[in-house]
Structures are given as C-alpha cells and as structure tokens.
C-alpha cells in the first residue's frame, strides 16, 4: 500500500487551476523528487499533503489516513519543511526545537535527549545555546529539517530543501536526506534543481501547469521521454563509407561526423532507436563491412534533457 496517495487531486484558486487532477502514489522508503518549473503546482501539492490546504477535488491519503477527514493523524505521520525556513529568531536553537516538540505533545522529560539527538543528526550540537537569528541560511535549513523530524514522522515532505544553499550546504543536505532514508523515512521533496533529483531520488515526478506529465525512475523516464540513444563512434578512417552504411540502417537517425585534421581520425555521432541487441547488431554490421572502429560509447541522457522533453515551459 502506498504511504502517500493522491487520487484525482485538483486545487483551484478562483479561475486558476494550480493542481489539475493529480494522481500519484509514493511507496514507503522512497526518496521521491517532485520536479517542475516555478508555478507548476509543486508547493501547492506539498501543502495539500501537509494538510495546510484543502484540495478542491480529489483525495489525499497519507499513511492510510485521509488528509481531509483525519488531518491530526496525517500531521503525526508527516514532517513538513516549507521552501522558506520559517524560524523564531528570538529563540535559542534548543528552544525552537523544544517548542515544536511540545506542539507535537512530546512529554517534557523526553525532550532534552530528543533535541540533543536531532541537533547531532543535523550537526548543530555546537550551536545548541545560540540564538536562531545568528545561524546561517544553511544552518537554519538544517534546523528546520530537525524541526520536521521532532515527532519522528514516517514521512518527510520537503519543499525545495536545498533552495538558497551554497554548494557545500547542498551536498550536506543531500547527504542528510540519504541518511534519513537509511533511517527508514520516506522522503517526498520538490525541487527545480535537477542535479539534486538525479543524485538522490529513487523516483521522479515531473509536473507542469498543475498536471503530472511524467513519473518513474530516471532510467524509465529517459527511455520513455527520450527514446533515442546517442552513440559516438571513433574511426581510424572510412568516415564517408561508415556514414553511408549507418544512414541505410534501420533505427538510425541524425548522423553527424567530425574529422580530426591532425591524424585523419574521425568521430560519428548518431541517434539510435532500439534495444541493446539492435545496437550490438549495428556494431557487428559496421565491423563486418570493414569499418575500422577504435572507440564506441553511448552518451547518457541526463535528467535535464528528460525534463526538457517532458515539459513545454508553461506554468499554470
């Protein structure tokens, strides 16, 4: 059973449809990256899951409870972190966590150890007695994550967790999310930074103009959205002959070549539609025709290309 399930969820603000008939299921233990351009409906979706907004239509189930009818149970199951780390500047770091622990009805005697553990997890133990206002943006973000974990939720719903962070802080945040997955948490995070998704997400959902346009692993999305494989061949010579042969082959599109003027070697780049067997057969055919191949490689499709293929650049 999915730990988060959205069934035909729609959110309208007057005439504007922010989220349109969104159906999505997240399994336990996943790190699910929710990707889309600004204004695509990511934050609205996350806020609906976090019970901050009511869907206009549809149903959201979190850990088996409906966000509409049982928001209290959903709040117990979820740790939510918004895109902006809202903090009380006039509190100490430990007081900030203590307040939210109290809001989650965690008994006072348990809180001290809990706060120490959380601060250790987010590497802020040394700032325990400092005022929140003295923390850097990255530290506030980590403190915000510790706050989201204060009631030991099964699920973390994080809106742009790495937004505004410097490269080092981004890496630290990514490592933290991986660690949380190892601790058994399900992580549902939104971002528009594709490298974050590519590195840590087990599955990705792409949303545009409020509609989910693609969902799956990065490999699945690559295959579905960008089926053409890009192949590079390095040749000793015989470029023209090779290009002629390739153009005649089934599944080969868009053949380009370049010639190295110093030693006469050349390189061919082609787009190929087909599985590994077909690709192997293509190679065998070239070799069989006496083409002197010295190098062969397939260019990996990155998420950026997949994203560009999936979206049209429109926002809701």
């Amino acid at each position: 059973m999915p730990i988060i399930e959205l069934r035909g969820v729609t959110k309208r603000y007057g005439q504007l449809t922010a989220v349109d008939d969104l159906t999505l299921a997240i399994e336990e233990g996943e790190i699910f990256g929710f990707v889309g351009p600004n204004g695509a409906g990511k934050t609205t979706t996350l806020r609906m899951i976090a019970t901050l907004l009511q869907p206009t239509k549809g149903e959201i189930l979190v850990a088996g409870s409906s966000a509409r009818t049982h928001p209290g149970l959903v709040r117990r199951a979820i740790g939510y972190m918004p895109d902006f780390p809202g903090v009380y500047d006039d509190t100490k770091v430990w007081e900030f966590l203590d307040f939210f622990a109290a809001c989650h009805e965690i008994p006072e005697p348990h809180r001290t150890q809990l706060i120490d553990d959380l601060l250790e997890l987010v590497e802020l133990s040394h700032r325990r007695e400092d005022m929140v206002e003295t923390l850097s943006r990255g530290m506030k973000q980590r403190l915000s994550l510790a706050r989201a974990l204060v009631h030991d939720p099964q699920i973390l719903v994080l809106d742009e967790p790495a937004a505004g962070l410097d490269p080092r802080a981004r890496v630290e945040m990514r490592e933290l999310l991986m660690e949380l997955r190892r601790l058994g948490k399900t992580v549902f995070f939104s971002t528009h930074v594709l490298s974050d998704v590519a590195q840590i997400a087990t599955r990705v959902g792409i949303i545009e103009a409020g509609r989910l346009v693609a969902v799956g692993t990065i490999q699945e999305l690559s295959t579905t959205l960008a089926p053409q494989r890009v192949v590079r061949l390095g040749l000793l010579d015989g470029i023209e002959q090779a290009m002629g042969l390739l153009r005649a082959m089934q599944g080969v599109h868009k053949v380009d070549s370049s010639l190295d003027s110093t030693d006469g070697r050349g390189e061919i780049t082609l787009e190929f539609t087909g599985d590994d067997n077909a690709l192997s057969a293509m190679m065998a055919s070239l070799v069989g025709q006496g083409i002197p191949i010295v190098h062969f490689s397939e260019v990996t499709r990155d998420l950026e290309q997949v994203f560009l293929r999936a979206t049209k650049g429109i926002v809701s």
């Binding site: 976090a50 019970t51 901050l52 939510y80 918004p82 809202g86 009380y88 939210f100 809001c103 989650h104």
Partner: peptide, 13 residues
C-alpha cells in the same frame, strides 16, 4: 509574516 504560522499549523497545536 515570519512564515511560522504554517509550521505551527502542521503540528497538533
């Protein structure tokens, strides 16, 4: 204004 209202709203308070 501090954006803490939504944080408090997701607790049991």
């Amino acid at each position: 204004e501090q954006r803490t209202f939504e944080l408090v709203s997701t607790t049991l308070l």
